[in-house]
């Protein structure tokens, strides 16, 4: 592994100051960063270890929102009693990702900062616009079966965002709190991850030197139920081919409100707002669910090997809704 300057920070100010230098990156759990530094895909000049920052609390705010410290591990968040009770979709999404050991290390902010799993990005040899802007995208005409998207792609990049946690957060609604050289600011979770467009090397809305300090979840939707359904090549320890995070509130036998986000099919955690609108006021039946699923995947664009993801994602929506509403045929 390449070498780098290394600083350990004990508070946020110290971390920001240490990161002032060019090419500095923050190190938390390291499960993405050190993996990619070993592959030489990420090439930091300086790492600032933020693990000792006091950002490891989960607090319920007076308005019902929940503020999660950047360093709360995936394991801790998934098991938190308040999260399990009020945001089951988030707990389930977290537990469906990675492995016990990785979840023990991986942090909330680190999960948000995860890089794509496209093998052309990771191999450090193939043309890849994310790794080397302007070099081309090897996946578009190459192997694009499992970790490549059908929604939000561009001619420059088609890699999926790999996180399960982020899909649940996109459905719940959240804010990313960041602190940087210019002070603190908040970014809506749905604006945080960027579509590849013409600049696939830009993956998120962070400015240089900014550090995520917290993720704030919207207050839970009253009288709702929620679940995460992940479909993958094997039953455990695998990235999603298609997944759905769904929160639903029923009124009698109709859908009063639904929130739907998709994983494994989008270049960012994919909120399907049009499908949500299509469900509003509809009877909780398979027909309604299928119509909403069609709406969700309307703009999908298949590539050589991943056209199957369109029906698969629809099924991830329908089955999750069926289970949640008890409308199993």
């Amino acid at each position: 592994m390449r070498t780098f300057q290394f600083d350990k920070a004990t508070d946020t100010e110290q971390a920001l100051k240490a990161a002032g230098a060019e090419q500095a990156m923050f190190l938390a759990g390291g499960t993405t960063l050190l993996d990619l530094v070993k592959l030489d895909v990420m090439q930091p000049e300086r790492l600032v270890d933020v693990n000792r920052l006091p950002l490891n609390k989960i607090e319920t705010l007076s308005d019902g929102r929940v503020r999660i410290g950047a360093l709360v591990t995936n394991t801790t968040l998934a098991r938190d009693e308040h999260i399990v009770e009020h945001y089951p979709v988030l707990s389930q999404a977290l537990l469906s990702g990675a492995t016990t050991q990785l979840r023990n290390k991986a942090t909330t902010a680190g999960n948000v900062m995860q890089r794509v799993r496209c093998h052309y990005f990771r191999d450090n040899v193939s043309p890849c616009n994310k790794r080397e802007p302007g070099s081309g995208c090897s996946a578009i005409e190459g192997d694009n079966r499992s970790v490549h998207a059908v929604l939000g792609t561009s001619e420059h990049c088609i890699a999926t965002h790999p996180s399960d946690m982020c899909v649940a957060m996109a459905a719940i609604g959240a804010t990313v709190q960041v602190q940087g050289p210019k002070g603190e600011r908040e970014i809506d979770f749905l604006d945080y991850h960027l579509l590849p467009g013409d600049t696939p090397e830009r993956e998120h809305a962070l400015q240089p030197g900014e550090l995520i300090t917290h993720i704030v979840l919207a207050a839970p939707l009253a009288d709702s139920r929620s679940a995460y359904l992940k479909l993958r090549d094997r039953a455990s320890y695998q990235f999603a081919l298609a997944s759905s995070a769904i929160i639903v509130r029923l009124q009698g036998d109709r859908i009063a409100e639904a929130r739907i986000a998709l994983g494994g099919v989008g270049t960012k955690p994919w909120r399907a707002t049009e499908a949500e609108q299509a469900l509003r006021g509809q009877p909780a039946t398979e027909d309604s669910f299928r119509r909403a699923a069609d709406v969700a995947m309307q703009g999908a664009k298949p590539y050589r090997q991943n056209a199957y993801k369109i029906p698969l994602a629809k099924q991830a929506i329908v089955r999750n809704l069926q289970t949640l509403t008890g409308a199993v045929a």
């Binding site: 190190l27 390291g30 070993k38 592959l39 270890d49 050991q101």
Partner: peptide, 27 residues
């Protein structure tokens, strides 16, 4: 694997099981 995928390097840090291949000693 040296990349957190196989678990051969699993040990306990402060009682918690982690992959030691994805951990810097200085941390």
């Amino acid at each position: 694997c040296d990349h957190g995928q196989c678990g051969a390097c699993t040990l306990h840090v402060n009682g918690v099981a982690v992959n030691s291949c994805l951990s810097l000693a200085v941390s």
